[in-house]
């Protein structure tokens, strides 16, 4: 009986372990990264994952003409700097935050609607260490709440 109890308890602990990292990531995105978007309104779409040094993630998103956007990419403070590039559909690099001292956010607007690719890479650490850093990375998009109408011409 005691062994059954012990086995159930052990499996319960093992079952919740993967969720611990995910829950941390959600809290990080909501409490830390979302603040970087202000005064832009977060579009409500949650994009966050756990990445290690050197890993890459890509986000495909349509951005609309006339809207003003803020793109924010944040990583756990234990991670090395995070590079993000914005590419057009032909993979031409439009923006690279590496040239802006790894800025977390980029504000932009478009004259015509485009599907853009945001390529995010956790840099590798220069420090010698016996561990590979791993942590949450979140990509959030916000837009300005503006009242004016689009030009109808």
């Amino acid at each position: 009986m005691k062994n059954i109890f012990r086995t159930i308890a052990l499996f319960s602990v093992l079952a919740i372990l993967p969720l611990a990292g995910n829950a941390q990531c959600k809290t990080f995105a909501k409490k830390t990264c979302k603040m970087e978007l202000l005064p832009y309104v977060h579009d409500g779409i949650y994009n966050a994952t756990i990445l290690s040094e050197g890993e890459t993630v890509e986000l495909f998103k349509t951005f609309y003409s006339g809207q003003e956007y803020r793109l924010t990419v944040c990583g756990d403070e234990k991670l090395p700097p995070i590079e993000f590039q914005v590419l057009d559909s032909d993979k031409n690099v439009l923006y690279d935050n590496k040239t802006k001292k790894f800025a977390k956010s980029w504000d932009f607007k478009l004259e015509s609607s485009q599907m853009l690719v945001i390529s995010i890479q956790v840099q590798t650490s220069d420090e010698l260490s016996d561990v590979i850093a791993e942590g949450c990375v979140s990509v959030l998009v916000g837009f300005l709440n503006v009242e004016d109408s689009f030009d109808q011409n």
Binding site: T49, K61, D148
Partner: peptide
């Protein structure tokens, strides 16, 4: 091999509603 994860982000309903309002 494990490096590239991909997210597909759709316009949120809030953004679509704003686009429509601004379009008249």
């Amino acid at each position: 091999d494990k490096a590239k994860q991909v997210f597909y982000s759709l316009p949120s309903p809030i953004e679509t509603a704003m686009l429509m309002k601004r379009a008249g």
